[in-house]
Design a protein around this nucleic acid. Structure first.
Lengths: 157, 157
DNA sequence: TTACTTAATTATAATTATTATCATTAAATA
DNA sequence: TATTTAATGATAATAATTATAATTAAGTAA
């Protein structure tokens, strides 16, 4: 399962003359295992270091930059001051959407592409050919709203 | 015109116990005059400094942070490594959209809100209450496409 | 296998962006 | 006018990222 994905990435790398070194492979594994997580460079470095020890943070920076160029991952910024990395999904030409909870910080993903119609409109109205997009919603997630309700109930009783 | 906008911002500041000092006013003016520009902190600092001289960069950082909290401006990141600041438009509860050209770097704004339907869908399908959103399209703008065509014509002739 | 060539790595220095500190100034208030 | 508080400027400290240079690993040709 994960091995297939790694092989695929290896092919993408070799196609461009790069190698999948042990350090790069471990970094990719961490990304795959944390597909839903949105880790920072520092976090990725710490996890890889705990496993193989033989890695410097500069290599992590370089590997992430490389994977970004290959469109394997995307560098995202949810406005909390740090960059995070997010795997692109298979067979999804465009980047997925996010629901960012301003209460608890949770980030949920919408993998379905909701922007096809709007992209046609952009082409029609602005003569702009869309290659990719970024759509994030900020707001209050379901579970935070439930918690707020139960807080209110406590206050009333 | 601009004065009205500044007065409005002054009121927003005083309502929260802040003052519109000379430094803050100049910073706001620069933002208003560059409504379509997306300046970085450094750029804003240089412009203000050339006018009043009496400002330190720390004050610019502080002022921009303050204006962000008041929802006067938004801190944006188009993926080129620097943060930029973008004025929120009047009577627009949600942030406007961007068309970012990957060829020439031009950033065009869509001031109309195209996401109302999708936000209802987010509420319905995920129980997530949207407070704000961020929508950017990356691609090739109209004028870059025209240029590419004329390049081809030259090559053929 | 051995020598050679190149890519990739590590450790660390340098750079850049941002934030924190603190003495000073300006403004508001009593 | 004296007092209090907010805001500023200069600069130190911190954090994130990039650049550098020596070393290692891997691939290739003789």
């Amino acid at each position: 399962m994960m091995d297939a994905r790694i092989d695929e990435i290896r092919k993408q790398l070799t196609a461009k003359g790069y190698k999948l070194t042990a350090q790069r492979e471990e970094t990719v594994k961490v990304l795959l295992e944390n597909e839903d997580n949105h880790l920072t460079t520092e976090e990725i470095y710490m996890i890889v270091k705990n496993r193989v020890a033989e890695i410097g943070i500069a290599t992590v920076y370089r590997t992430l930059e490389l994977l970004k160029e290959l469109h394997v991952i995307e560098k995202v910024n949810f406005g909390d001051g740090v960059y995070r990395f997010d795997l692109r999904r298979k067979n999804q030409p465009h980047f997925h959407h996010h629901l960012i909870c301003t209460e608890c910080g949770a980030v949920q993903e919408i993998l379905e592409d909701w922007l096809l119609l709007l992209e046609k409109r952009v082409e029609r109205e602005f003569g702009f050919t869309v290659e990719d997009h970024r759509l994030d919603f900020q707001g209050v997630c379901h579970s935070c709203k439930l918690n707020q309700k139960s807080e209110k109930c406590k206050a009333v009783s």
